[in-house]
Write a protein that binds this DNA or RNA. Structure first.
Lengths: 157, 157
DNA sequence: TCCTTTTTGTTGACAAGGAAACAATCGTGC
DNA sequence: GCACGATTGTTTCCTTGTCAACAAAAAGGA
């Protein structure tokens, strides 16, 4: 296998293990799964987090997030509140019972992020420039694929 | 955002769109979804394909593949056969009704693969070497995460 | 041979998440 | 003010896939 093929093979390998790459072995919080932990994460990060905002951040439907938040509310890991000027929107914040999870997740998340940064820093500036250019090229390809998926039939030739 | 952070951001972006990266906008075969098409793919590729082999290739459980093959059999896109010396194992091959799908998928798959190779070939040998080394570093990190996941006792309740 | 362990494929119960329909509320235009 | 489209959150139905239990056959081992 020549170098270009090996590179593509490595890329495919990363994509195959995308979940592991994004989240590593982070997160074993007893009965909570990864999605629920990330939901807590975004509720803790966002100002005035609501179902719609969290669903956008997590790339999931409002229906899915609504169900998850319902569970987290029942477990008292988050709590909801409203503002007097708006009687429709429902906001969430991390409740006392969920603070430990939020903090623990933040620690492991930052640690995982640091590991990735450390790998990158082993390369000098010129090498990093090559890597960055390459990754942007690859993402360009991915984005053009996404456009095709979301394009209306009339746009496709 | 400095260069290392931009690189990690691009990597995360690839991981977020891992499905699009792996399969692009390939595959709109009417009532068949991507998984079913890939199942046909592997049944066509593998010699004496059976539920176990296909499940290994696709990283899914035997139960899932068994159900998919059941559907594909009903639609007469694949057909099953056995060998006289073994009365337990059930093998599959692509049936006439599935040959078009298999071939069409092969074409788009090869095209997608070619696009990736072409991106890589825009870089000279030295640059490719840097890229390959970097990707292998990243995959090393991913693999160590996987080991941790599978080494963790899941006796949490 | 006979008995045990492994492998293979199937099934049912279950959970996660999407799609779409829905009600309630908001906000803008008039 | 009022009407109407847009947003928001929820729920129901459906699909997908995992897990665990299972039966049948195979593969070894004494």
């Amino acid at each position: 296998m020549d170098q270009p093929h090996r590179i593509v093979a490595e890329l495919i390998k990363i994509a195959e293990h995308a979940d592991a790459f994004r989240h590593g072995s982070e997160d074993f919080y007893g009965p909570l799964n990864l999605t629920e932990v990330h939901c807590i994460h975004w509720i803790g990060i966002l100002d005035h987090a609501n179902v719609t905002k969290v669903s956008n951040e997590m790339g999931m439907t409002r229906g899915a997030i609504s169900k998850i938040c319902k569970k987290l509310l029942q477990k008292q890991l988050i709590e909801s509140y409203q503002e007097p000027e708006n009687n429709k929107n429902i906001y969430f914040r991390v409740a006392d019972g969920g603070k430990d999870i939020f903090e623990a997740h933040k620690v492991t998340h930052n640690q995982k992020f640091g590991e990735k940064i450390n790998i990158v820093k082993k390369y000098d500036a010129d090498e990093q420039a090559v890597i960055l250019r390459f990754l942007m090229d690859i993402n360009g390809l991915v984005e053009s694929s996404l456009e095709k998926i979301y394009a209306t039939p009339s746009d496709v030739d």
